[in-house]
Amino acid sequence: MGGLTLNYIIRRVLIFLLTVWVSITIIFMVARLAPGDPISAMVAQASASMGVVENQDAIIEGWKEYFGLNDPIPIQYVKFLGNLLTFDFGPSLIAFPARVSELIARALPWSIGLGLVTLPLIFFIGNLFGALLAWRRTPGPLKAFIPMTMIFTSLPSVLAGLVFIFVFAFRMKLFPIAGPFGRGMQPSFTIEFISSLIHHGILPVASLVIVSFGFWTLGMRGMMVTTEGEDYMTLADAKGLPPFYVLYRYQVRNAILPQVTALAIALRTLGAGQILVEAIFSYRGIGTLIYTSIRNQDYNTIQGTSFVVILFTAVSVLIIDLIYPLIDPRISLEGN
């Protein structure tokens, strides 16, 4: 019987925890290894813009004490871990006195929304095109058309975004240039707001989808061709099953398995792409937050947002790992 075994779940969850722990340790160390010190930099910035700042040293000391930077590194590390567990990343430096967690909480729904639209679209379109490209019965014109849609593949999504902004927003004025919804609107469940949301979302989604789905198309086509040669495909034909049923229940159903594995790996690149696309479209998501915090050397926000990105990637991978035994009945044996 296919399904999850307890052993399998425990192992996957342990791997998940290990991944997150290693990643956050790296974040902690990178921040400490980087040259300079954020407080001095901040005060120096302030003095540069406002002229002389009195009691500079006292201010720096005070802030250092406040941010806990005078503690020994191991203590800082333990505090850091503890804070992360409670999603407390300290105050934001650029939006002070707002907490980083508040900024993240505000940005997160936008990013999740964008990801939840683009990722399934990429996976669906990519695999659909790949399956059609390999299927024997696909009409010729369609087979000729699909490769043409893939010309943007492997372009950086930012570049596609810039091109789209220039062509469709700036020149043709078909879509707004930036922002998640119309200026002056309040998020609400009205048709007006939702249509504005969709209108603003089309270009960011399109620039993410158009550069990524080709990867899935090629992968799926390859797997479809491999599957086509399997004995069970011949037997399915011999049984006189309807061609479309053979396509999805025999060929696609088996060809898609490695694609799902690849999804776990591809999540990282997709996430990275989304961060940059959000930034150029001034979408209110985590990507834009990361972008502004890096530009302004807002260490706390950088750490917080990185942690969120890591957590999301790891959780997605964990989910895929847990789903996999359900779609491939042979995997569940591994846990025994």
């Binding site: 399997e230 004995d231 069970y232 011949t234 037997l235 399915a236 034909d237 011999a238 049984k239 006189g240 229940r249 025999y250 159903r253 088996n254 398995l257 779609i327 491939d328 009945p329 042979r330």
Partner: peptide, 20 residues
Amino acid sequence: RWTKLALIPQGAMNSLNPTM
């Protein structure tokens, strides 16, 4: 097919769909 002309393949190998 199958109603009049059926095939018994070398089933020990790979003739069954692994996901069904």
